[in-house]
């Protein structure tokens, strides 16, 4: 099992750092899956912890790495699964911000580590080198099946999101009033964020958001014969939603939300070579 990658371009380093920062805001531990073409950050939380799950995919060809060498556990399973704390990775990348080059490699130290070595500018002709050894757990192959890409659910309504900053501002305020939030949307491009307590009901309305067309694939089925003005709604833990909105450092070119009535909300953010999916289950 070998893995080694190198970044030289500052832009790539910044992009990668932003993605990792976003991930580290969403979860304390996650699984990093390395394949020859892609990098994945994955999380499937236990129901007890709120049951959120995350799937973030970085396309390796997408100019993240100048060099990328990988040998998986075997020829037919040419992949590596690691469990790590994204916070460590984020911190290590932060100190490498003005690096001339950054190497990431899998190493065997006191324990398996993902080692980041950054070559930093210095006052002399010799570069400063900073290395961070991030402990990882190598996930054995028999457990890989636990990490399958989540299937896009049979949603009732799919809608483009308003600017995430705006949404965050609204949700931040609502969080002070209630623990739960109802997110509802229809096929007329309207979305509402609502909270209801004994003392107060607050609702924020967004309109003209647009509904993405999902082509002819089956998952769109239910929404076809839906009356456009009928709302699909889901009640979610407001903290989970806020965490998702607060962590966003990548400004996505497309942000969408699929609602499965009374069951879950599925967010999809797309930006160049990165896609992030985030699932928040409904609460009763």
């Amino acid at each position: 099992m070998r893995f080694r990658a190198k970044m030289v371009d500052v832009g790539c380093l910044n992009n990668f750092t932003r993605v990792v920062n976003t991930i580290s805001k969403l979860t304390k531990t996650c699984t990093l899956r390395l394949t020859t073409d892609n990098l994945f950050f994955m999380l499937s939380d236990k129901v007890a912890n709120g049951g959120v799950s995350m799937w973030c995919e970085l396309s390796q060809q997408g100019n993240f790495f100048d060099e990328f060498q990988l040998e998986g556990v075997s020829a037919e399973a040419n992949e590596i699964y690691l469990e790590l704390q994204p916070e460590n990775l984020s911190r290590a990348l932060r100190t490498a911000q003005n690096a001339k080059s950054l190497k990431i490699k899998l190493t065997k130290k006191h324990c398996p580590c993902l080692t980041l070595a950054a070559e930093l500018p210095s006052l002399s002709s010799v570069s400063r080198v900073v290395t961070h050894d991030i402990p990882v757990d190598v996930i054995p192959r028999r457990l890989w099946q636990d990490f399958k890409e989540p299937i896009v659910p049979d949603f009732d309504v799919s809608i483009y999101l308003p600017p995430l900053k705006t949404m965050k501002n609204v949700v931040d305020r609502m969080k002070n009033l209630s623990q739960h939030l109802v997110l509802e949307a229809n096929l007329n491009g309207e979305m509402n964020l609502k909270i209801e307590t004994d003392l107060v009901s607050v609702s924020t309305h967004f309109k003209d958001l647009g509904n993405p067309s999902w082509g002819d694939d089956g998952s769109q089925g239910p929404s076809r014969d839906r009356a456009p003005e009928v709302m699909a709604h889901t009640r979610v833990d407001i903290k989970k939603l806020q965490q998702f909105l607060a962590g966003q450092q990548v400004n996505p070119s497309k942000a969408m939300c699929n609602i499965v009535n009374k069951r879950m909300v599925h967010f999809i953010l797309l930006h160049e070579d990165v896609s992030l999916q985030y699932f928040i289950p409904a609460v009763a």
């Binding site: 704390q85 460590n88 911190r91 290590a92 100190t95 130290k109 006191h110 324990c111 580590c113 210095s122 006052l123 002399s124 002709s125 010799v126 400063r128 080198v129 900073v130 290395t131 961070h132 050894d133 991030i134 402990p135």
Partner: peptide, 16 residues
């Protein structure tokens, strides 16, 4: 929790 801690090392040349 030693195995969980990130270890950092930085090398500086005498010339600096």
């Amino acid at each position: 929790d030693q195995s969980r801690a990130m270890l950092t090392e930085l090398c500086l040349s005498a010339q600096e």
